[in-house]
């Protein structure tokens, strides 16, 4: 293999490598923006401030929860949030009694109804808080208490 050939091969290989990597990891530059302070916050107000820069919210009846009344195992609590609000761009779920209340945030771009669901861990009996941002306004809804008989945060 002469020098020119080697260089061509090198170029081909690195080109392939780049394409492969970007295909596997389609994270944009904003991926680095995982909101550490919000997830580390130890109370609801700090988490709200870190996430949305405000603690002023409007209670909304358009947000509803699907969550069990009694969760036998706090390690797996299925929760869904349904928001009948237009132009939602962000949804957050908080568990006030957890060591760090913020559980998860969703960034969606839905013109009308927004539905998100996941399974969370709960340390002890607690209500749930949903925050929904739409058109720059922050809406909030509190669920009734979810009773936890075995906590799921370890310790």
């Amino acid at each position: 293999m002469n020098r020119r050939e080697f260089n061509t091969r090198l170029a081909v290989f690195s080109g392939l490598g780049l394409g492969f990597a970007s295909g596997l990891v389609p994270f944009s530059a904003s991926a680095a923006a995982w909101p550490t302070t919000a997830f580390d916050a130890e109370n609801v107000e700090d988490a709200m401030n870190a996430l949305y820069g405000t603690t002023s919210t409007e209670m909304s009846d358009a947000i509803s929860f699907k969550a069990p009344d009694i969760a036998e195992n706090g390690a797996v609590v299925p929760v869904s949030i349904i928001a009948d609000i237009d132009n939602v761009d962000s949804v957050a779920l908080l568990v006030p009694e957890n060591p760090s209340p913020l559980a998860v945030t969703f960034e969606v771009a839905n013109p009308s109804r927004t539905t998100v669901g996941t399974r969370i861990k709960m340390g002890k009996t607690s209500p749930l808080i949903a925050l929904v941002r739409a058109d720059g306004k922050l809406y909030r809804a509190d669920s009734k208490e979810v009773k936890v008989t075995i906590g799921g945060c370890g310790g």
Binding site: F39, A75, V95, S100, A103, T105, F106, I120, K121, M122
Partner: peptide
């Protein structure tokens, strides 16, 4: 996009 904390099961 979804940002998860350790409180997800």
């Amino acid at each position: 996009r979804c940002n998860m904390g350790p409180a997800i099961s």
